[in-house]
């Protein structure tokens, strides 16, 4: 295994994928804690489909993929949040509708222009070749930002996640934090989806926090554990993908899944021991 990792590190594109991907998984996991607990998991899924639509347009027109999709997805994040908050519309149905539409739009645009090229299929299922130097720098900057947010605004994030009404009454700008988290999630998804694939990126957001919640009983514990776990699972997934020559996105999801099952078993075990 050590030899294999050493071998992987000799390929510059794999080093980029590892660094960028670990940064993205760290962001996704931390943001995911708040999203999952607020019952906003579907937003991650919706955003990845919107991101696919935006990327197909970018490919078709030849514009820079990031420049097109980051603003579009950030806008979509903003919009999806509004839908979820507005109780008049059934939030989950609306999100499902929007993500299907974005996906369909992307497919139509692509088949009318370039045809279903390898580019688009790699957006669907991910490709480790996707991380460019610029992407790596951007993902490092993003994760620095997310880390700062979680360290310095930790108490406010806790308050907003646990009880929006109370946080509002305490003078915390709930709207600001919701939008900030949604926009950071949007950027995370755009950066991560070309590697993980539009179909699989939402697992990076949802899995680590769900797994951490099996065992940890404090918010702090869940946040820290899911961050560490996510990076670890990503790394193991990459090694597995290299060793077995399977697509990275899928192998990372399976490693996350295994971690979830392991933690569930541990939590069952703890209950049993405590009895």
């Amino acid at each position: 295994m050590v030899n294999m990792v050493g071998e992987m590190l000799s390929y510059p594109f794999l080093v980029r994928a590892l660094i960028g991907g670990m940064m993205v998984s760290l962001c996704a996991a931390l943001l995911g804690v708040s999203l999952v607990l607020k019952r906003y998991s579907m937003i991650g899924d919706g955003l990845s489909h919107v991101s696919f639509g935006a990327l197909s347009v970018a490919v078709a027109t030849g514009w820079s993929p990031l420049a097109v999709s980051v603003p579009v997805v950030a806008l979509a994040a903003f919009f999806l949040l509004r839908i979820t908050e507005n109780s008049k519309v059934k939030g989950d149905a609306a999100i499902a509708m929007i993500s299907a539409c974005a996906l369909a739009f992307g497919i139509v645009v692509t088949s009318l222009t370039t045809g279903m090229s390898t580019d688009v299929s790699s957006y669907m299922f991910g490709s480790i070749l996707a991380m460019s130097r610029g992407d790596v720098i951007l993902s490092c900057a993003l994760s620095a930002l997310v880390l700062c947010l979680f360290v310095f605004c930790y108490n406010k994030i806790f308050a907003v996640t646990f009880d929006e009404s109370f946080a509002k009454a305490s003078g915390v700008s709930v709207k600001f934090y919701n939008i900030l988290i949604a926009v950071l999630t949007a950027v995370t998804i755009v950066l991560g989806m070309r590697m993980m694939g539009a179909m699989l990126i939402s697992s990076l957001i949802i899995f680590p926090s769900l797994t951490a919640m099996r065992v940890w009983k404090s918010f702090r514990g869940v946040a820290i554990c899911s961050g560490v776990l996510s990076v670890l699972c990503f790394f193991l997934g990459m090694v597995l993908s290299y060793g077995l020559s399977i697509p990275a996105g899928a192998s990372i999801v399976l490693v996350n899944m295994a971690a979830f099952l392991l933690f569930s078993a541990v939590s069952r075990g703890l209950v049993f021991v405590n009895r």
């Binding site: 406010k156 308050a159 646990f162 109370f166 009454a169 305490s170 919640m213 404090s218 918010f219 869940v222």
Partner: peptide, 29 residues
Amino acid sequence: GIGYLPQQTAAQKDFPATVYEVVISGTLN
């Protein structure tokens, strides 16, 4: 300051937080 006790939401019922974490968030104002 005013101490506010909002209606409980469904999401709170299974929130992973210690009692201490919840209580101290009251000092946020």
